[in-house]
Design a protein around this nucleic acid. Structure first.
Lengths: 338, 338
DNA sequence: CTGAAAGCGCTTACAG
DNA sequence: CTGAAAGCGCTTACAG
């Protein structure tokens, strides 16, 4: 019923091998032959059998996207990107949700990681944050000689394939925008101390403040942990103080939502009485009202880039192994002139 | 390097076929033989090669989860469930995000659907809503004789395998809770008119109201479309009217968030001045403050159930083909006694 | 209860 | 530029 490579070969009057060459875009096929084979293949609606191909070439044509404790939006975007890059090369993405973060000892992490690769033999892996920082997992991957790409690891090194965005630059630019709107006293709510993104965003903020010659009052910088609740606490401290800021930069959208919540309770209108911006452009940012000014991470692009880099590792070398993607500042209703 | 079935057979002193029987849990193997083979297999860390197995048995050991316009949280939960059920049977899940909803003509939908199955040969498919209502897609699946399961289709029929939850019962129970708390005037904000869930939730609500002998004032029921914004509009109409309700039942969490937003602006405290409940238990429900009383759909369970049903279709028959899963009412801070 | 043979549909390695 | 042969690691269909 389903056409095989033999069917195509017979009908095109060539050998199986030639059909294989055409389909895999190998060189050394006469143009005329190539055309004929292509014509017959599409006429027969031929598509190669993945299992047969995999068995013969000892590849699986599968890559694993390994993640843990996903922010659902982040993970689905990463998936979309990776799937799209894989399709172009006849690959498919297999999902590996794990519970690695809940494990306490390195030994447990190691054996849990081993299990992932014993079950299924993939040709490469993409590690989503925060697993891109798990040295045990990376060691297991390396020991198996599996190609891998890290998404947004804390630290990048030129010889470790990874994709990331520039958190420093994004925070810097977002802060510059607030300053350009006339804000002189800007509050900042930090992210979770274990995430490197939190540090980078703070540094970007401080750099812009310093460059503009604004004072770096310590009282304007508050701790947070990326949760709505921590945004509420920090906002209360900032807004109930004497001489409160006219703008608040929260390190993610959830905390920014917390700030807006507090502002509403204090009768402070956003953006007229207070400008607020977040980070990440989660769905929350456009669900809220006013909609949130924030930074859109190139999540889809990073997923695409990671898979693309992974599948190119066989063929090409000497690339730069760290790819940085552009963010986008989303100016919306939650910020205005001071 | 990697152990094959031949290695296991040799070391256990049996034929390849016997090893195969043990691994596939086929009958007619002596208990002693079975034990010996199992021991050798685990010693050699043997795991079967999916490609070889697939080629020989003309199965792919892959199922497709087909979706469109995903609510990220819904899709990741469905994925988790399906993956978990597949693992138990040596299957894997391949994702197929589509743009089917954007296509206008049935012909386009048909050819887009065909493409999905030409690229990769899966052994079965799960259709997530709203694709579980796409007759064109279902026709294509049927024409290929592929086993399939629908997730939360608008209409279930006993001979079409599907998983769902009881929207009517959930809305009924949630409304009963409000009534038990002493609320006599309860507003209702409808969901999107194209979703069958919206109708069922309205019916459940009305049934509880009627049963309690409360008046079914038409002014208390407002249109909505599942968006935050529509919740805002409906809440304004309800709350700025004379004799406003003491509780509002919004058909999803986003609209409930809109209601709370309006309440804050009107100086109406939640839950003291107004009780609010939503539906779906999205992450938003616990990000907000007060946290939202809502209904948790058994999304993970539906994903698990769908995959399980799919993989059982070969072997078993005569089952009930429609499986209904239990919801959970989450009582949180947004509702209180009238 | 067990096994020997054939074959799934491709690619690899070689030959011409 | 093209092809014939062998083999990837399993399962199926059959035999005993």
């Amino acid at each position: 019923m389903k056409a095989t490579i033999t069917d195509v070969a017979q009908k095109a009057g060539v050998s199986m091998k030639t059909v294989s060459r055409v389909l895999n875009k190998e060189p050394n096929v006469a143009e005329k032959t190539r055309e004929r084979v292509m014509a017959v293949a599409s006429e027969l609606r031929y598509s190669p059998n993945l299992a047969a191909r995999g068995l013969a070439s000892s590849k699986s044509y599968l890559i694993a996207l390994i993640y843990d404790n996903p922010n659902a939006y982040y993970i689905t975007e990463l998936q979309r990107g990776a799937i799209s890059a894989c399709r172009k090369r006849g690959y498919h993405v297999v999902l590996e949700p794990t519970k690695i973060r809940e494990l306490s000892s390195p030994e447990e992490v190691k054996s849990a990681s081993e299990m992932i690769f014993e079950r299924l033999h993939v040709d490469g892996v993409i590690l989503a944050p925060p697993l891109s920082d798990s040295q045990e997992l990376i060691d297991v991957v390396r020991a198996r000689n599996l190609p891998y790409v890290l998404v947004a690891p804390s630290e990048t090194s030129p010889d470790v394939p990874s994709v990331k965005m520039d958190d420093f630059a994004a925070a810097y630019e977002l802060t510059q925008n607030l300053i350009a709107q006339g804000h002189q006293r800007i509050g900042f709510i930090k992210g979770h101390y274990q995430h490197s993104s939190a540090d980078l965003r703070l540094e970007g903020f401080c750099h812009a403040i310093k460059e503009a010659g604004l004072s770096k009052e310590p009282g304007l910088i508050k701790d947070g942990d990326y949760s709505f609740r921590s945004g509420v606490v920090a906002a209360e401290a900032l807004l109930e103080a004497d001489n409160p800021p006219t703008a608040i930069f929260a390190c993610n959208d959830d905390m920014a939502a917390g700030v807006i919540h507090v502002a509403a309770r204090l009768g402070l209108s956003v953006p007229d009485g207070l400008s607020v911006c977040g980070f990440d452009d989660t769905p929350l940012a456009t669900i809220m009202w006013p909609q949130l000014t924030t930074v859109a991470q190139p999540i889809y692009e990073m997923g695409y880039g990671a898979a693309d880099m992974l599948l190119r590792q066989d063929t090409e070398t000497g690339d730069d192994h760290v790819q940085t993607f552009d963010f986008t500042i989303k100016k919306r209703g939650s910020t205005a002139r001071a």
